[in-house]
């Protein structure tokens, strides 16, 4: 005891005790707040699921069924994952405007929060690809333009055209333009394979390769019109059209003028 009481009067006793006390309080708070956070997460998730379910019942269930089990006119959404919902609803493709060959990209009907709620609800039905986070989507850091171009030409250009302007598929289906699409949505399209598009799993194209493709698309998107008016970047059809209209039109006009002036 004597020793203890001596230590009690030691010079360092005050600071040591203070540090100890702060550490204890800090740790206790940390644990308590983590538990709280988890509770809050669970709570917000269930709230999102509930909200998502409500939106789903209101806006989607008439085609996809009350439990997202699908019907004749629309596929089941069980197991499609949050990424699929985020892509289809976030790009305005869903809900569809009409029953045409394929859903068109248009102004989104739901706000980002509502899309998140819907995605959370659908993801809660069965596991599926998740929405890629911002950290994963750092294509500026992790992608390479040249490699992305090669990958795009090998995997994407056959449907989406050499400059990502889109192209025709059979029976009125089409590959849409990839210009002006959010990187998140491009990534989701590759992992979920919407409509006529195949799925590019991480074995086919690694996440880095996907980011390279996104980086190339963004570079093509922001590329200035180097040779003058780009004429839609669809190749020789528009070039021929211009030669047959403006080109020969101007020249025949001048020829008529040259021959008329002689009178």
């Amino acid at each position: 005891m004597k020793r203890l009481s001596r230590l009690r009067r030691h010079r360092a006793a005050g600071p040591v005790l203070l540090i100890f006390a702060l550490f204890t309080i800090g740790t206790t708070f940390q644990v308590a707040s983590a538990v709280n956070q988890e509770n809050a997460n669970v709570q917000s998730r269930s709230a999102a699921i509930a909200e998502g379910k409500e939106i789903f019942l209101r806006g989607c269930s008439s085609c996809h069924g009350l439990n997202a089990e699908g019907q004749e006119i629309a596929p089941s959404l069980i197991g499609v994952g949050a990424a699929s919902v985020d892509f289809q609803v976030g790009t305005g493709r869903m809900p569809m405007a009409d029953m045409s060959q394929q859903a068109m990209r248009k102004a989104p009907v739901y706000s980002p929060e509502e899309v998140h709620a819907l995605a959370t609800y659908v993801a809660s039905l069965a596991p599926g690809p998740a929405v890629p986070g911002d950290e994963l989507l750092n294509y500026e850091r992790d992608g390479s333009v040249a490699e992305g171009g090669e990958l795009f030409r090998t995997n994407c250009a056959m449907c989406h055209n050499f400059a990502g302007q889109g192209g025709a598929l059979t029976q009125g289906k089409y590959a849409p333009t990839v210009m002006g699409v959010q990187p998140k949505h491009i990534y989701e399209a590759m992992i979920t394979g919407p409509q006529a598009m195949p799925v590019f799993s991480d074995k086919t194209l690694t996440p880095e390769e996907k980011l390279s493709i996104i980086k190339w698309i963004k570079s093509a998107e922001s590329e200035p019109q180097l040779g003058g008016v780009a004429l839609g970047r669809v190749g020789p059809v528009t070039e021929g059209l211009l030669a047959w209209t403006l080109g020969i039109g101007l020249l025949i006009g001048v020829a008529v003028w040259l021959a008329a002036k002689a009178r």
Binding site: M158, G227, G228, V229, R233, L241, A243
Partner: peptide, 30 residues
Amino acid sequence: FLGAVASINPIWLYGPYNPGQVSAGSQPDW
């Protein structure tokens, strides 16, 4: 004038030839 204002055959967008690749809407000249 056409050469100055209107792009034609933007080869840099097409990329180098590779027999394993093809672009949608590959067309010949008119």
